[in-house]
Design a protein around this nucleic acid. Structure first.
Length: 642
DNA sequence: GGGAGAGACGTTTTT
DNA sequence: CGTCTCTCCC
C-alpha cells in the first residue's frame, strides 16, 4: 500500500505526511488521527528509500511504539521490520552503553530497580536527615535534572542539596549503577558537551509523539539529536497529564519560536468520539482558563450522538455492584468484553471492581496487577539471580546483605565500603575476607552472617545442571509469592538458546521493567486514567467520579496559582478519560460513556484513597459528585439514581 | 541490633 | 483507620 492511499491532498493529515519542511509541529486533539498521519509520514519516508535506521520515531510509552510498528507492518511497507519505535529512555540506555560513551561519562548504565533503592536511601539517611529527607532529596535531584535546572544561569542547589548529591553520586559510582532518572540527563550531558559526537548526526528524520509529555531534559535530547535531522513533533497541551514527571508542556509552544519557518499544522476533527461526547469534552476543557490557544474539537456528524449515562449510587459497594452488573448486561447483549474499558482514579476503586467482575465470571484484566517483585521472596530470589550472573553486581550484593536488618545494616556496611574504597577492593572481596575472619571490622558481624548465607545459596545454584533448574530453585513451582516472576522467567528460558546467565538476567530485567503489552484484547480492561491515554474503546466507564478523588485537592503546600494549575491538570485527566470512547457506526456501535459516583463510602477507605471527608456520618464519609460532571455542560444527560 | 510507643501520612504515573 | 518512620531505651 502506498503512503498516500486514501489520503485527500487538501487535508492536514496529507500535509503532515507529505511536508518536506525540516521542522513540523502538529497540534492534534484526542482522536483526531495523529497516529494515522504520523504512520503515513513514516511510510512515505520508507518508500523514498530513507534507511530505516536513520528514522527515529520517538514515543512516550512502549504501547505507542509497538502500535506504530504493528501498523506499518500491516501496511506492508518495505523496510518497516527494521524500523523500531523507541522510547527516549531506551534510546538513551542504548547510547550510554556504547564504549566511547561509557568512557566519556564514566558511569555504568545499570539502572537501579525500585526495590534496590531501599538500601541506597538507608545508606544516605543518617547523614542527611533521615529516610524521608533522603527520599525527598533524591527526588529533588532527579527533578532538577528533568527540568535541566543545572543548565539554567544562576541556578545553585542549596548546601544541603549539594552535600546530598555528592554522597549520592559517590554511592552510585561505587556501586556501578545509576538512578533511572539519570539515564536521560546523562545522555543529555554527553550530547551537550560533545558537539562533534556521531550520535548528534545519527538520524536523518525524527518524529516525536506526545511532545507535551516530555520534560525539559527529554526535549533537550531531541534537539541535540537533530543537528542534521528533519524533525516532526506532535502533541496537545490539553492532554498534558504528567506534571508529576516534570513534563514541560510549554515546550510545544516555545518550539515554534525556536524553530522559525516551521510548518504549523493542526488536526481538529475528532474522528473517534460520538458527537455528544465531543461537545461534553469541549465544554469541560473550556473551564481551563489557562489554555494558551483554545482549540475546540470538531465533532464528526457521521459518528452519531453516542450514548451517555451518569449514575449516582448510594454507597460505593452499590457502585461497584452496579458497574459490574451493567458490564455483565452489556456482554450478555453481545458486546465483546474487549470493547469495554473501565477507568478509575485509584487502585482502591479498581481492585474491588476487578474482584466483582471476576467473581461474576466476566473475563477481566486489571492493569493494576501486582508487580512481579512485590514480595520479599521474589526480590531476594531476583537479587540472588543477579549475583549468580555477576558476582560483581554490587547493588544486588548490597541489597542481599542488608535485607534482614532493620536498617539494612547501614552502620556495618559503611565500614565495609570505606574499607573497599581505601584498599581498592570490591565488596565481594572484602566480605569474603570478613567472613573468613581475615578481615575484622566493627559492626559487621551481621553482614558476615548474611554473606555466608548468600555464598551458600550461590554455591547451591552452581551445583544445578542448567538455568532451568536454577529458575525452579529460586522461583519454585507453586509458590504464590514468586508465581509472576516464575512465569516470566520460564517464558524467557523457552526463547533463549544459549545458556548465558548474563543474557538471561538482562532479558528478565527488561521483561520486569517493561511488561509485554497484550495485542489481542479479549478481556474487560480496568486501568487508571493515566494509562488509558492512547487507547480507545466502544464502551468506556469511569467509576468513582467524586470530588476529592477526581479532582484531588493536591498537596497543601501549593500557592493559589499552583493549585489552579493542579486543578486544570486533573480536568485534562478527565478530558483524556471521556475522549477514549470510540464510535463505530459501521459496526452498529454508537460509542458509550458511563460515569458513576456514590454518596458515601467508609471513612477508612476514603482516608486510604486520599480523600479527607468534609462530612461524615458514623463511619461513612459523605461524598459529592465531581465538579467535572457539572462542567460537562448542557449536552450531558441528567444524572440518574442507580 | 532490636523492640516499644508516639506521630505522620495517606494518590495518580513513565522509564 | 492502618502502615510506615522515627525516637528512645535496653
Amino acid at each position: 500500500m502506498a503512503w498516500s492511499d486514501g489520503l485527500i491532498p487538501t487535508t492536514p493529515a496529507y500535509r503532515i505526511a507529505s511536508s518536506t519542511n525540516d521542522r513540523i509541529r502538529v497540534v492534534a486533539g484526542p482522536g483526531t488521527g495523529k497516529s494515522f498521519a504520523m504512520k503515513r509520514r513514516v511510510a512515505r519516508l520508507l518508500e523514498m528509500s530513507v534507511a530505516p535506521n536513520r528514522i527515529l520515531p520517538v514515543t512516550f510509552t512502549r504501547v505507542a511504539a509497538e502500535d506504530l510498528h504493528r501498523e506499518l507492518v500491516n501496511m506492508g511497507v518495505t523496510g518497516c521490520d527494521e524500523l523500531k519505535g523507541v522510547t527516549l529512555h531506551s534510546l538513551a540506555l542504548r547510547m550510554l552503553m556504547r564504549n566511547h560513551v561509557l568512557d566519556a561519562t564514566g558511569r555504568v548504565p545499570r539502572p537501579l530497580n525500585e526495590f534496590e533503592l531501599e538500601p541506597l536511601i538507608c545508606d544516605l539517611a543518617n547523614a542527611h536527615g533521615g529516610k524521608k529527607a533522603a527520599k525527598r532529596l533524591k527526588i529533588a535531584y532527579e527533578a532538577a535534572w528533568a527540568r535541566l535546572q543545572y543548565q539554567q544561569p544562576g541556578y545553585a542547589p542549596s548546601p544541603a542539596d549539594a552535600a546530598f548529591q555528592a554522597d549520592l553520586l559517590d554511592w552510585l559510582r561505587f556501586h556501578d549503577s545509576m538512578l533511572i532518572g539519570e539515564v536521560i540527563p546523562l545522555l543529555y550531558q554527553y550530547l551537550h558537551s560533545n558537539p562533534a559526537a556521531a550520535e548528534r548526526r545519527e538520524y536523518r528524520h525524527i518524529l516525536v509523539d506526545e511532545y507535551q509529555d516530555l520534560n525539559r531534559a527529554e526535549q533537550g535530547i531531541v534537539q541535540l539529536l537533530s543537528d542534521s535531522a528533519d524533525v516532526c513533533i506532535v502533541g496537545d497541551d490539553d492532554q498534558s497529564i504528567y506534571s508529576f514527571k516534570h513534563a514541560h508542556p510549554d515546550g510545544i509552544r516555545e518550539w515554534l519560536n525556536a524553530n522559525v519557518g516551521a510548518d504549523d499544522l493542526g488536526l481538529d476533527e475528532c474522528r473517534r468520539c460520538p458527537t455528544r461526547i465531543v461537545e461534553m469534552a469541549n465544554s469541560l476543557i473550556g473551564h481551563n482558563a489557562q489554555r494558551p490557544v483554545p482549540r475546540p474539537l470538531n465533532p464528526m456528524a457521521a459518528n452519531g450522538a453516542g450514548e451517555v449515562q451518569i449514575v449516582q449510587y448510594p454507597t460505593i459497594a452499590r457502585e461497584v455492584a452496579g458497574v459490574a452488573a451493567s458490564v455483565r448486561e452489556m456482554i450478555a447483549n453481545g458486546t465483546p468484553p474487549g470493547d469495554i474499558l473501565v477507568l478509575t482514579q485509584s487502585r482502591a476503586f479498581g481492585t474491588p471492581l476487578y474482584e466483582a467482575l471476576v467473581t461474576s465470571g466476566v473475563p477481566t484484566k486489571s492493569y493494576y496487577a501486582e508487580s512481579e517483585l512485590s514480595h520479599d521472596n521474589a526480590k531476594r530470589a531476583f537479587a540472588l539471580l543477579k549475583l549468580f550472573a555477576n558476582r560483581e553486581d554490587r547493588v544486588a550484593l548490597r541489597w542481599l546483605v542488608g535485607v534482614n536488618g532493620n536498617n539494612w545494616h547501614a552502620a556495618g556496611y559503611r565500614r565495609v565500603r570505606e574499607h573497599c574504597e581505601n584498599n581498592g577492593m570490591s565488596p565481594w572481596e572484602a566480605m569474603t575476607e570478613l567472613e573468613l575472619g581475615v578481615l575484622r571490622l566493627p559492626y559487621t558481624a551481621a553482614i558476615a552472617t548474611s554473606f555466608r548465607d548468600i555464598v551458600q545459596n550461590l554455591s547451591d545454584l552452581e551445583a544445578l545442571p542448567d538455568l532451568r533448574a536454577v529458575v525452579d530453585q529460586l522461583f519454585p513451582n507453586g509458590q504464590e509469592s514468586t508465581r509472576n516472576i516464575r512465569e516470566l522467567a520460564v517464558a524467557i528460558l523457552d526463547t533463549i538458546t544459549a545458556d548465558s546467565r548474563e543474557d538471561f538476567v538482562r532479558e528478565l530485567s527488561t521483561a520486569i521493567s517493561q511488561p509485554e503489552i497484550p495485542t489481542e484484547i479479549e478481556d474487560v480492561r480496568i486501568m487508571s486514567l493515566h494509562k488509558s491515554k492512547g487507547l480507545s474503546a466502544p464502551v468506556t466507564i469511569i467509576a468513582g467520579c467524586v470530588q476529592g478523588l477526581l479532582p484531588r485537592p493536591g498537596p497543601d503546600d501549593l500557592t493559589l496559582a499552583q493549585q489552579a494549575q493542579y486543578l486544570e491538570e486533573q480536568r485534562r485527566l478527565f478530558y483524556v478519560g471521556i475522549t477514549r470512547v470510540k464510535a463505530a457506526p459501521a459496526d452498529g456501535k454508537p460509542g458509550t460513556l458511563v460515569l458513576t459516583y456514590s454518596q458515601q463510602m467508609p471513612v477508612r477507605d476514603a482516608l486510604s484513597v486520599g480523600i479527607t471527608p468534609a462530612w461524615q456520618q458514623y463511619d461513612q464519609a459523605l461524598l459529592h459528585a465531581s465538579q467535572f460532571i457539572r462542567e460537562l455542560g448542557p449536552t450531558a444527560p441528567v444524572p440518574i439514581a442507580g
